[in-house]
Design a protein around this nucleic acid. Structure first.
Lengths: 280, 280
DNA sequence: CGGATCGATATCCCCCGGGTATCGATCCGC
DNA sequence: GCGGATCGATACCCGGGGGATATCGATCCG
């Protein structure tokens, strides 16, 4: 099976429409139809149920969509990492993490690694929540800082770096700020102060009373205005202003910062970075 | 990058010889040379250092060899699993495990799953040590029983099923059989009774005094003949004869049987099998 | 019932991936 | 040191396949 065939199939399977898929691929519809037919004939499997008015995935088609996406990610990763390995292409490693997360650990880690003999330059890329895994998988990044239990670490090798408890961030002067500690039940359903809602991976928001949040700065401002609250790892404290107060939440899950990388990576540079990180 | 180009490059990178690589690929040498040149030009990266007498990998070439193998495995997996998803192609799931390992757990697991409503047929494939990971990665299998800490589980999702201690298998009547328990130091360097050596993944054997073993039956016979000893999980006991004796080894690592599957798998059948296995 | 939508078919073209012949450079044996 | 052998690169040719355009046939809708 050729990469091109996979790209074609994934496009059609995602659009469920030959015309739109062809447009997305920058080609005409007839050769796309023919290519998919050829793919089905070569595999000996029906991938799509077509009527003259609709296209639907068969079970086998669903399998190929899932597996094909993973395969295309792997091919893309091979290409990107090879390009990046070109002598004189700048960065040796690309590390990806969420904005304003684990900055302490990150800074120490980068310093420790840079001090090692034979270390290579490390590009730090910040991205939005839930995007790191994809970047590791398709080679835009080589290594990531993730946060259990929020980020999925399935399919990666990981080393734990740092664990911390969570605190609720409240507007200064809120009645609950006098408490020594709280439980999730205390903060879950405050009618006057709803919990902020983060976007999901696809950019949409689930239902709920809280305001929809786009970034941390916006969130912290909303809190100091008395419009929301949020439960965050305690390392958020350096980012807070006098408008905020924090109270430990006893039964919120412990957040663990981990360093994660694709399991087949064996590069010397990556091994050095991981060693520097775990040796802190 | 096309699958064909990747296959060509991997062949050349493995052979380090255009002629042999072309032969392996079933084609002539000139188009292969040209294809590799085109690949280098498109990527903008030198992959191979050629003289008229030798071929060597550049750093970038080494990256592409590693990443490209993973990508080819993923493409192959997509193709195989799609073919297997064809209605009427027999097995719904392929489970791979080592011969004579964890048979107890396996049997119970298969029974429990088969009893579930909506279960699909499961093909059980036995293979030699260290080959399971490759079969999971390139789609020859969907799920595997692996044994920590012997098998590498990097890159897979796993659930632990069963843990057991290890025992040393000795010829009946050997002086050490009178002991209640032993330590690795006791069995490591018995001059009269060397530890058997298993083949490595590539089929070769490391150095050492012990006999080279090909399968478990051969091993057990060698032990009863007084020519070798071996440390194995205690569940090996049902396979032993009156020519063998076992003594627990206190400081041998605990062996854990795990069920493992590729992390992006989301099939209903696989989920059911994992649930049946962990629910035992 | 007629137009619109959408995938399939028919047909053409040309590029690219494959083959053969050969060259140029390096190594080796005598 | 020279001639043959080895091995990758180059030159050139050919055929198939992947792309485009024109059109058809089926279905849905007003």
């Amino acid at each position: 099976m050729e990469t091109r065939e996979l790209r074609y199939f994934v496009a059609v399977a995602e659009e469920l429409h030959f015309g739109r898929a062809a447009q997305r691929l920058g080609m005409a519809q007839p050769p796309l139809s023919r290519a998919i037919r050829q793919l089905e004939r070569r595999l000996g499997v029906d991938l799509l149920e077509r009527t003259s008015r609709s296209v639907a995935l068969t079970d086998a088609g669903a399998v190929l969509l899932r597996e094909g996406r993973a395969a295309l990610d792997a091919v893309e990763a091979a290409e990107r990492r090879t390009r990046r390995a070109h002598p004189g292409s700048g960065a040796g490693l690309v590390l990806v993490t969420k904005a304003a997360a684990a900055t302490e650990v990150l800074a120490k880690m980068l310093d420790a690694y840079a001090a090692e003999p034979g270390s290579v330059p490390v590009d730090v890329v910040l991205c939005s929540v839930g995007e790191q895994e994809g970047m590791l998988r398709d080679g835009r990044a080589d290594v990531a800082l993730l946060h259990k239990p929020f980020d999925s670490i399935t399919g990666f090798d990981v080393e734990e770096l740092h664990s911390e408890t969570q605190v609720v961030v409240l507007p200064a002067g809120h009645p609950l700020t006098t408490r020594k500690h709280l439980r999730m039940a205390d903060v879950d359903a405050l009618p006057d102060l709803p919990m902020a809602r983060w976007p999901r991976r696809d950019g949409t928001y689930g239902g709920g009373p809280g305001p929809e949040i786009h970034d941390q700065a916006q969130l912290l401002q909303l809190i100091s205005l008395g419009r929301a609250l949020v439960v965050l790892p305690e390392s958020v404290r350096p980012y807070l202003t006098e408008g905020h107060a924090t109270v430990p939440v006893l039964d919120a899950p412990t957040v663990t910062t981990v360093i994660a990388w694709p399991p087949h990576s064996t590069s010397r540079a990556l091994a050095g970075l991981v060693r520097a990180a775990t040796g802190l």
